[in-house]
Amino acid sequence: MLHQKALITKVEQENFKVKTFHLDLELDAEPGQFVMVWIPGLDEKPFCVAGVKPLRLSVAKVGPFSEKMHELKKGDFIWMRGPFGKGFELKGKKVIMVGGGYGVAPLRFLEENARKKDIDAIFIMGAKTCTELMKKPKAKILNVCTDDGSEGMRGLVTEHLEVALKEKVDCVYACGPERMLVKVLEICEKAKVECQFSLERYMKCGFGLCGQCSCGGLMVCKDGPVFTGKELRGNSDFGKKRLDASGKGIEI
């Protein structure tokens, strides 16, 4: 699959470091899947799909590529190929979504789908501080928290999850900093609840060949980026190690 050109039709400012781009391109993508975005002459990076109809990508300003993305405006073009990878699988009648920082993006898309299927979702979202919170989903039950208490409850999303799990749910979906995901897995295992996680790694090929995104031997681009708790249990890299561009292991 080669790249398709996509027109930017709208740019939403989510918070001071995240913008969501609306694109004039039809893409049959599931929540949790990703696309490789190419800016000709610069680089190509993976971004999770934040929604379809219209296609949306949420981009946090974290490096030279995303800085360039943030300069783009309505009417500009980007190139992309995808969707790639395995997305979230909605299960049961009642679920919980736990999003940390910009990890909220694919879960908002998942929550839209859950509503269409009449699955009840409790949405827990958090950030370090109020200026880093993403826009809120339309979920019926929404818990917002910040580490410093500047908006919503003071505390971590995982503390909210422990409270929410006093009720029986069918599955927990999480995306965010990997240390948060490790904690979510621990909580879900204790509560004996199924869970799915979306991971992030530096990628090259995007379709399972080069090995660059290895997480303890799992290829995040093809085996994931969404993994079940069962798949991640005992994984030596989960929450601990990622590979840099040279393939060297770096502590998370």
Partner: peptide
């Protein structure tokens, strides 16, 4: 570090790469 992306392409019966010998030494 190897070359910047895109480094690997696939279309039809072709895979093309220019990963550029990235390796940790």
């Amino acid at each position: 570090k190897g070359h910047p992306n895109p480094t690997v392409l696939q279309f039809g019966d072709v895979i093309m790469n220019a990963v550029g010998l990235s390796n940790p030494g």
